[in-house]
């Protein structure tokens, strides 16, 4: 009887032997680097139209879109681009890249004021004053509030965010610090670097990490943030009624629809041979 019980327990215990390692999906961790000379942007002074550059400023780094792909094909475009499947229908210029997984390192965030729609990228600003200063002194296009007046105080900015967004702490404000756990770029000398994790991505041996930075335009806008009626979350706070803009759902499936001259692309995508090992991906090819 004792033997039977032992055998039964052993049999039951074997039912727990299943390991989820059998899944082909992993949280792949790594670092994203972007050389400082690739972060130099040219903007136009809104008043004079004069073109000038902003250099070595983490706040000028646009959203970075990363994907895990089967491979990269240099023949498709004038910049390295993921392999594509067959072209289907008439709406898309190329086939789908069928990414295995994806992540952003900084994404467009609601900036609490309508004038800041699609202007603020997460993981780039340390404080509200940092935002105010950057747009006033560097972009030369100050933050304007709902009344048409310039926002000059970080306290005022924060209060407006809390009030219109029904927020209670900066942890809920994505564009301040690492709000909500957003990756934050650090100055590493010749380059900026941020930690990132591409969650729950399919991994097959030989898969690569590829992506690009959406460089700010001369008016400090981004092609990967779309504004318009019904696009994005709707702010509905008394007479402040507008849509906040949104990121296209297919930008990693059809990157060529959103990559334009001036954007910076991964030239040498790292191969993930072991999903448990960290990768380092460098965004270093400017599409001219």
């Amino acid at each position: 009887m004792r033997t039977s019980t032992t055998l039964l327990l052993a049999l039951l215990a074997s039912g727990c032997a299943y390991s989820e390692d059998a899944l082909q999906h992993f949280d792949v961790r790594g670092k994203v680097r972007i050389p400082k000379d690739m972060t130099t942007i040219t903007v136009n002074d809104p008043e004079t139209g004069e073109a000038y550059t902003i250099e070595n400023d983490v706040r000028a780094i646009g959203p970075i879109w990363l994907g895990v792909y089967s491979g990269v094909d240099d023949r498709l475009f004038d910049y390295p681009h993921p392999e594509v499947g067959p072209v289907l229908g008439t709406d898309n210029p190329t086939g789908n890249t069928y990414p295995y997984g994806s992540m952003s390192v900084g994404r467009p965030d609601w900036g609490c004021y309508q004038t800041m729609n699609c202007k603020l990228i997460t993981g780039r600003y340390s404080s509200y004053d940092d935002v105010i200063e950057f747009f006033r002194d560097e972009v030369r296009d100050p933050v304007i509030n709902q009344l048409g007046d310039e926002v000059t105080s970080g306290i005022e900015y924060r209060e407006h965010c809390y009030e219109t967004g029904y927020l209670t702490s900066d942890q809920e404000v994505g564009f301040i610090g690492n709000g909500g756990g957003e990756p934050y770029f650090e100055d590493m000398g010749d380059y900026f670097e941020a930690e990132t994790t591409i969650y729950h991505t399919l991994w097959l041996e030989g898969a690569v990490v590829w992506g690009w930075m959406d460089t700010p335009s001369r008016t400090f806008d981004f092609s990967t943030c779309q504004e318009g009626d019904s696009l994005g979350w709707q702010v509905f706070y008394y007479d402040e009624q507008y849509f906040t803009g949104q990121v296209p759902i297919d930008l990693l499936n059809f990157p060529s629809k959103y990559i334009f001259q001036g954007d910076v692309v991964v030239q040498d995508p790292p191969v993930i041979d072991d999903p448990d090992k960290e990768f380092t991906v460098e965004i270093n090819f400017r599409y001219e």
Partner: peptide, 18 residues
Amino acid sequence: KGFYTDSLGRQLEIEYGE
């Protein structure tokens, strides 16, 4: 329905119906 196989051998079903 058709299939697309990427360079790592992953097979994807594609709907060609329009």
